[in-house]
Amino acid sequence: MRPDTPAENVDHTAEAARLERTAGLYPEDAEALLLRAAAHLELSGDRPAATALYDRLLSASDGLENPALIRALKASNLWEYDHEAEARAIIDGIRLTAPRDPAPWVIVAESLESHDELEAAEETFTEAARLLLTDGQEPPASTHPLLYGRHRVRRMRGLPHDAWDTLADTLHTAPVPLDELHDPKRVWSLGSDNPAELAAEISRLRAELGAYREALSRPFPVAVLHWPAPELAELLSAYPPLSSEYPSHETHLATIESSLRELSSSGTGNLGIVTGTVPSYEAFAASEGSSPDDTTLLPQYATTLAARGRAVAWPPQRGAECWCGAGEVYGECHGA
């Protein structure tokens, strides 16, 4: 449940340094960029440096978007290099403050789970579910990892299914059912000393996760640029030559969806949408020493926004609002 967790075939130290430099250039995006940098440092093995980044964020004078998430990530990281007491204190503090965002709950519960504290992990998942899930309403996509994690831990503990486990089964749409995915024998086989068992399980995991791993091999998504209607009107008023790219706002939205579907059908994963603003685009053009009416700048601008962590994943989760901003469910809007 880490934000933009990097893939394995990346030079993590170099990518962390790049993200830190980018954060310096774009302070408004620093929180998201430094969290990604810390994730790379963890994967590089430099956990103390990752902790230093978390502390840097937590000590910032500007307001943080999600301080509970940062504390949860710090606790998880600390526990991995023998700072258990400090990690536990942070976890207790997070549970006490009861954040309304599912991500910190998932991270601390998974940290407990990874250290074989299954009962405490289940309690944490359940506590979060009681706080964040509303009876009679479909859980938002952001809460699905809570239900999946709770299902996994309960399966490991040999507990019978309850209503939330059944709900998790319903929400899970991948080819492999949760009961099989969370089968204790399957999980334990990854720690087996039997080479045949390990080889068989690794083959299964590769088959299930191959496409996902390929998608994550890029440090940021392949992103398509989206202009909200007021921004597009301002853009075309200021730079009429761009009208050839954007005949109308409706055409612009339809082109975004069709382009993403075409990329997806060709096998491209890790797709996203970035939203442009005229001042940001003008600043980008100035930094490139070019004019904003140069159409070749548009894809470069989109790539830069994606590199700054501004991309929203496409397609949206089931039941989520459409990316276009109309306020309708994606499946009844551009996803229809």
Rank of each mutant, 00 (worst) to 15 (best):
P195M: 10
Y239K: 13
P240T: 13
T173G: 06
A120Q: 13
N9H: 13
E231T: 08
A141M: 04
A283N: 14
L159C: 05
A285N: 04
P67Y: 05
D193P: 03
D179A: 15
V278W: 03
R218F: 08
E282M: 14
G289D: 12
K74A: 06
G210C: 10
R186L: 08
I107G: 00
V153Q: 04
D179L: 10
E86F: 01
A87V: 01
F284P: 04
D193T: 11
L96G: 04
G289L: 07
S59C: 03
L41Q: 12
A207V: 11
L205K: 01
G289F: 08
N66S: 15
L34Y: 01
L131S: 12
K185L: 12
A60N: 05
K74Y: 00
L235Y: 08
G289R: 07
F284G: 02
L271Q: 09
R154H: 10
E231H: 08
E250F: 07
L57T: 00
S259E: 15
H83N: 04
T275Y: 11
G325D: 12
G158E: 02
Y301L: 09
A17W: 09
D92R: 15
T173F: 02
E257V: 06
W188C: 11
P67H: 05
P299V: 15
V10D: 03
H172I: 05
E65I: 09
I256C: 13
L73D: 01
L53A: 05
L34M: 12
P99N: 07
L147P: 01
R157A: 06
L167S: 06
P230F: 13
S264W: 08
S287R: 11
V224I: 13
L78N: 06
T296S: 11
T143V: 07
G327H: 07
L35T: 10
H151I: 14
L178R: 10
C333G: 09
Y212H: 13
S61Q: 12
